[in-house]
Simulated scan of single mutants.
Amino acid sequence: MAKPLPECSPRRFLFVVVPEFSMMPYTAAIEALRAANRESGADLYHWQTATIDGDVVAASNRTRIAPDCALAEAQAADVIVVCSGLNAERHGSPALFAALRRAARMGAMLGSVCTGTVLLARAGLLEGYRCTIHWEDVASFAENFPALHVTTRLFEIDRDRFTCSGGTAPLDLMLHFIERDYGHDLALEVAELMLHHGMRVSEEPQRLSLRERTGLAHAKLLDALARMETAIETPEPIEAIAAAAGLSPRQFERLFHDHLATTPSRHYLHLRLKRARHLLQHTSAPIMQVALSTGFASAAHFAKCYREAFGHPPRVERRSDKVEGVKA
């Protein structure tokens, strides 16, 4: 049964957006609050959007939005949500970090969606808290903030902090808040209005299963692929992976050829180089450290493989003007 609607003031959210923020997580969160107000027929939630300087800001999809105000002029909020996306490490500022720390001292609940976790961490606001981030950024985030407890969950709520992965996951996060505030029935009504089939819990994985991602049904091949994905820093011999999956080397080669049109060694190398590229783009770790973190013992061998895969040496990824792909 839905909880009785309160007679207290609406819960106030402040969304702080930085350049190149991801549009989907931002709108998913706000739309859930709007839908809760509509379905309840009450003014349960208020929200504002702020930027550091109050100027129009472009999302990662290049859509430009006009904020309600500059961060310093925002109304007092119960919950502050930092929204980021691409190149989060470039969009922090002393003014932003100071404002977030001040809000924390005043008792606001602080959170983030997508790579906003990076900005909370840089502000020193996640020490001693569990946190999560978009799955694509987990490795680089852990590299940059080794002392933090980072998970791969859909979202994390730890006392007065919350972090959320990205994509549509903020909708699940907000449904959790709505359920906690006003009951399961209202949360279900919001989920149905948003055509969201089921409210995912925080423990659910961010990524699709390997079976869903690859379209494969061969259990032994899937086991081998999973083993490769988890052994990036210390690669296992191909023969050992095949044996662990219960396959002979010849069977292993044939399965990769028939189902993936490649060889086991080439697929494994691609996984390691893809991880290396992300670390180069999103951490300040020395190139040799990135090489070691992805299973290359020699800088020369790493550079050779990298150039063959991407057409340029690893150092090019560190150029500040390099264009990166769009994250959901």
Results as ranks from 00 to 15, higher is better:
M1Y: 14
E7N: 13
C8N: 14
P10C: 06
F13R: 01
F15C: 11
V17F: 06
F21A: 06
F21W: 01
M23C: 09
M24H: 07
Y26H: 12
Y26F: 15
T27V: 15
A28D: 12
A29N: 10
E31G: 13
A36H: 08
A36Y: 05
A36K: 08
N37G: 06
R38I: 15
E39I: 04
W47K: 03
W47T: 01
A58P: 04
A59R: 04
A66P: 04
P67Q: 06
P67F: 01
P67E: 00
D68S: 09
D68T: 01
C69Y: 08
L71D: 03
Q75V: 10
A76S: 15
I80S: 08
V81R: 03
L86K: 10
L86P: 05
N87Y: 11
G92L: 05
A99R: 02
R102H: 15
L110N: 09
G111Y: 09
V113W: 05
T115Q: 05
G116Y: 07
G116E: 04
G116I: 01
T117M: 02
T117E: 05
T117V: 04
L119T: 07
A121K: 00
G128F: 10
Y129V: 05
T132M: 02
T132S: 02
T132I: 03
W135L: 07
V138M: 06
S140T: 01
S140I: 02
F141I: 00
A142G: 15
A142K: 15
A142M: 13
N144H: 10
P146H: 08
V150M: 09
L154V: 05
F155V: 05
I157T: 13
D158K: 03
S165Q: 04
F177Q: 09
I178D: 06
E179G: 15
D181N: 10
G183P: 02
G183M: 00
H184K: 13
L188R: 14
V190H: 03
A191H: 07
L193Y: 13
G198L: 08
R200W: 11
S202F: 11
E203P: 01
S209A: 06
E212L: 08
G215R: 09
A217W: 11
H218M: 00
A219K: 14
L221G: 07
A224W: 00
A224C: 02
E229G: 04
A231C: 14
A231M: 12
T234L: 12
P235K: 00
E236A: 11
I238Q: 13
E239Y: 00
F252C: 10
F256L: 00
D258I: 02
T262G: 06
H267K: 14
Y268I: 01
H270L: 11
K274E: 14
A276I: 00
L279N: 07
Q281D: 09
T283V: 09
A285F: 07
I287T: 15
Q289F: 10
S293K: 11
G295C: 07
A297M: 11
S298M: 05
S298N: 12
K304L: 12
K304Q: 15
Y306G: 09
R307T: 14
F310G: 11
R315P: 01
V316N: 08
V316K: 14
R318C: 08
K322T: 12
E324A: 11
G325L: 14
